[in-house]
């Protein structure tokens, strides 16, 4: 399992979606619901293997759970969002059940630099109408 690196990041989970703020670098990381469910599992006591197994059971053996999960965890560690911690044996299946759809989507997050600038942006009038905040209008 993993824990959030509290020295650098602050994570907020609401309505099934994480937003994570790196208060040292000023970066903001946005997660979709599928990646949020996996991140929640990893930070709630589930081990890496438990999560991979639960995803494989949910989406089938050929869903690429190992590869997708490994890449996801590597990116979280590279961004210094998580720190490794001993697993506590939490069941990962309920988290995998939160992921909608027939196939396991790619897991990841979007990274936005300079949160102060993002917060200065008008979230209705200065954003791309098809994407919404924080994607600026062309």
């Amino acid at each position: 399992m993993y824990i959030f690196n509290d020295n650098k990041v602050y994570a907020d989970l609401a309505d099934g979606q994480y937003i994570v703020l790196n208060h040292v670098s000023g970066e903001y990381y946005a997660f979709d619901k599928a990646s949020s469910a996996v991140l929640e599992a990893l930070t709630s006591g589930c081990g890496r293997e438990d999560v991979a197994k639960a995803l494989a059971e949910r989406f089938g053996e050929g869903c690429g759970a190992d590869e997708k999960l490994s890449a996801f965890i590597d990116s979280l560690l590279a961004a210094e969002m998580l720190l490794p911690e001993g697993a506590s044996g939490q069941d990962a299946a309920p988290f995998a059940e939160k992921i909608e759809g027939e196939s396991l989507p790619e897991l990841g997050f979007e990274r936005f630099t300079d949160v102060a600038d993002l917060l200065m942006m008008d979230p209705i009038h200065e954003v791309d109408e098809d994407m919404g905040w924080p994607i600026p209008k062309e």
Partner: peptide, 11 residues
Amino acid sequence: RLEGIYRSMRL
């Protein structure tokens, strides 16, 4: 844009 304003307020 509604989802965007929700994200921005959370942040």
